[in-house]
Simulated assay, not measured.
Amino acid sequence: MSSRPVRVGLQLQPQHADYQSIRRAAAEAEDIGVDILFNWDHFYPLYGDPDGKHFECWTMLAAWAEQTSRVEIGALVTCNSYRNPELLADMARTVDHISDGRLILGIGSGWFEKDYQEYGYEFGTAGGRLDDLAEALPRIESRLGKLNPEPTRDIPVLIGGGGEKKTLRLVAKHADIWHTFGDPEKVEHKIGVLRRHCADVGRDPAEIEISAGVSGKPAETGQTLLDLGVTLFTIEANGPDYDYRELREWLTWRDEVNG
């Protein structure tokens, strides 16, 4: 079991809603005590009407940086394919400053083929996209070290995904937070793989915060995942009607666990 405090994240999915509704939902999430407010990096809805209302990720994060004052913010996750790594580093540094140091840089290799086709990006293969991510991460780190002004803090890097050969090795080398999903048995297996990669690259796995996507009631999986080492529990909320009943239960559980 980790010594980190339990945190609760919310992925506020920016689909099927007017932006005014998204703004209100972000404000409510901060007011009721969520620790991290995530969106996602897609150009079209993932559920429901595939051509329904949708908004872009990073311009929204800049708006959230101004709108909010306490909650950390980030993408779950940025698609590496959509932006030059140096540009992404500069965008992250800028949102970091706008938010007074509350940005988490969530990133992954990308997977939603419609985004690629409609916006003119080469989809390629899953392995090729992971290779591109492996090339991009050191470039992002290097650019963050060259920017003037520099970031307000060492921006935490969150890597999402569970690929055992490539993704988890990138997590071991580069991530401050790793986001995964699945039942406790699957999460336990992936954590074991991550620990082996950490040993291979000389990284203390305790340095990496483990995040899991969860649903249902915390009594069902919360303690089991916590015992495995998960300390960031992330709930989804889908537009246009952002329902926070489940989120509130996880926030209550968090406060009970943290004492």
Rank of each mutant, 00 (worst) to 15 (best):
D131S: 08
I159E: 07
G162F: 08
G128D: 06
G163Q: 07
P184W: 13
Y121D: 02
E150A: 13
S211A: 13
P149M: 09
G216N: 11
V157G: 01
W178L: 03
P149Q: 11
K166F: 06
E209T: 13
K166E: 03
P138G: 04
R129L: 03
A175Y: 15
S142K: 01
E164M: 07
R169G: 03
G182H: 05
G128Y: 03
E209Y: 11
Q117L: 12
E209D: 11
P184A: 08
G163N: 11
K114C: 02
V157P: 00
G213F: 15
D176P: 09
H189K: 14
E209G: 09
K190T: 03
G160M: 11
F123H: 05
T125V: 02
G127E: 14
I208T: 10
A126C: 02
P184L: 13
G127S: 08
C198K: 00
D154W: 11
L168Y: 13
K165T: 11
A134T: 12
A199G: 01
P184N: 15
K190N: 10
A212T: 12
V187N: 07
E209A: 06
K114E: 15
R196A: 15
R169Q: 05
V214H: 10
I159K: 01
Y121V: 01
K165V: 02
E188T: 14
R195P: 07
W111S: 01
R153M: 08
R196H: 11
F123P: 03
L137S: 01
I210S: 03
K166Y: 12
A175H: 12
W178I: 01
R169H: 05
R203C: 06
R129I: 00
N148T: 13
I140N: 00
S109Q: 12
S109M: 04
R153H: 15
E150D: 12
T167S: 08
D131N: 11
D183H: 13
T167L: 10
V193G: 03
G161E: 08
D132T: 06
G161V: 03
S215I: 10
L194K: 00
E141P: 01
D200L: 15
R169Y: 04
V157M: 02
